[in-house]
Amino acid sequence: MREFAVALVICLGGIAALALFLGMGKPVAVIGLFLVSGLAVGSLYALGGIGLVVLYRATGVLNLSAGAIGAASVMSAWQLVEWQLPAPIAWLAGLLLGLVLSLGFGRMVAPHLAWREPVVKAVATLGFALVLLGLVSFLWSDDPRRFSLPTDRSSIPILGLRVTLTRLLVVAVAIGLVVAISQLLLHTRIGLQMRALANNRRISSMIGVPILRVETIAWGVSGVIFGFTGLMFGNLVRLEPNVITFLVIPCIAAAICGRLQSLPLVLLGGLAMGVVESLLTLSDTFKAVRPMAPYVIAILVLLMMNRGRLLTFQGGD
């Protein structure tokens, strides 16, 4: 909790300083616009990051195919809507596809990699991402498309910017997920088992934690989160599988901010990244390269986390 408070202060301070510096001589209303606009994108980064962390904690796999799973989900949901299916059924089907894809990989492929080091596990998921991206781009040619939700139509003004219900929904779901999963980890048996696995897999298995069951749940839950993130990316960013697939990299940046562990920090990190990226539009020097913001922030966080540490020891990840 103390850690979160410190991080929050650093984030708010940093963003305020950046806003003051870049926004010098510009109307306050304009800065407000960019601030709110950035929160929307930031919550998407956070959402993806949350899914990645949930899975990584329980299974030790950093899933680079998260974006591809999301892309498959949103494209199939779009297709079902085109085929005149009731929209809610299409959305559910999209989420279900995310669940199935993630579970499929988790149950069929991941066990073969169980004893490999984390980097190899992560790299293997890239293979899955390429398979999914190839299939999705084969099935859907590159026509311009749009994935709409009923929540797009109503909006409320915040600091002068119209914010649609969809954007609010993303922020709400991200916060809700952080709270819900944190409570789950603290107060349920499966949560306890997940924490045990995250701490030490070998000892957990020896004391009888049902690893397979815990891992299956983690793959399933993260699959649904990736599916949902994909639907939101498709609605709020672009309905292009190629773009959605590789948005996993900024999502990893958000996950790094939480040390691949702490969900509240992932949320905070993701939001901060979105806001900084958006605020950089005010700078003539940096606006062409503002998507770099998540990566720079993630590197700074990693450096800060490890300050004072001089040596690395085996297993000291």
Binding site: S37, R238, L247, G274, E277
Partner: peptide, 14 residues
Amino acid sequence: LLNPASPDVNSGLL
């Protein structure tokens, strides 16, 4: 000018 890698088109619009 929008960087094609940027997911955020809103800021460009603003």
